[in-house]
Design a protein around this nucleic acid. Sequence first.
DNA 1: CGGAATCCCTGAAGATACTG
DNA 2: CAGTATCTTCAGGGATTCCG
Lengths: 124, 124
Amino acid sequence: MQETAHSPATPPQISAEHRELLDQMLDKWSLHVLDRLCEQPSRFNELRRAIPAVTQKSLTATLRRLERNGMVERVVVSTRPLAVEYRISSLGKTLQDLIDALLRWTTVNMPEVERARERFDEQT
Amino acid sequence: MQETAHSPATPPQISAEHRELLDQMLDKWSLHVLDRLCEQPSRFNELRRAIPAVTQKSLTATLRRLERNGMVERVVVSTRPLAVEYRISSLGKTLQDLIDALLRWTTVNMPEVERARERFDEQT
DNA sequence: CGGAATCCCTGAAGATACTG
DNA sequence: CAGTATCTTCAGGGATTCCG
C-alpha cells in the first residue's frame, strides 16, 4: 500500500469540477426552480411568481445554467405573444428525492437551528 | 376553503427563513466542511489542508456559521500552543446521508452533465 | 497553532428601462 | 410574454499583517 500522504481514512476529496457542479445546482435559486419544475412545467413569469424575491435577471441566469447542465428543458411555442415553457429533464428528475429530502430537513430541523442560534448569539 | 390565490396545486412555497438556512448549509464550503467532519473531528489547519482552495477567512466564516446554526461544535483544548477541534454535532450528523447522496449524485451524473454542456455550448 | 483585522477588488445581484 | 441591456451597489473572497 502506497503512502503518498497517509493511509488511514484519506477523505474522498471532492474535485474542483464536482464542487463547481454542486455550486451550480445548490445555489440560491436553482433548488427552488428545480423543486417547482419537478411538480409542474412552468412558464417564465409563473416561475417568477412562484419564487418570491427572485429577480428576472437571476431567474434567467438560473434557468440558463440549469438548461446548460441538462437539468431543465426549454420549450418555445411560437404562438402570438410567444410562450416559453420550462420543464424538468429526466436528469433533473433524478434530483427530486434529494431536493425533497433537503427541504424536509429544513422544515423538521429549523426549530433546533433557531435554538442553536439563540444560544450562540446570547453568549458574550 | 379560502382562495386568496388559487387552490389547484399551490406549491409548497419555501419561506425566506428556510431559504436562508439552505443557503447557509449548501454554500460553497459548508458542504465540504460538514462532509469532512462527519468522517472525523478535525483541527483548523487539518480542514484547510483537506479542503484545497479554501482560504482561512472563508473557512473561519464557514465554521462560525455552522457553529451558530448548531451543526458543528468547537472544542478548545488549552494546551500549549493551543488546540481547537471541530466536530460534527448531533444535528449536523443528521445531514450525513443527505450530503453523501448529494456527492454520490454528482459522481454518478457528472458525465451526463458534461455531455449536456457540450451540446448546449456547441449550438450556435 | 488558530485565528482576528484590514484593505482591496471582483463578481453577482438589484433596479430600471427597453425590445421582439 | 419573455426576455436583453445597462448601471450601480454591495457582500464575499484573496492577500497580507498581527495577536494570544
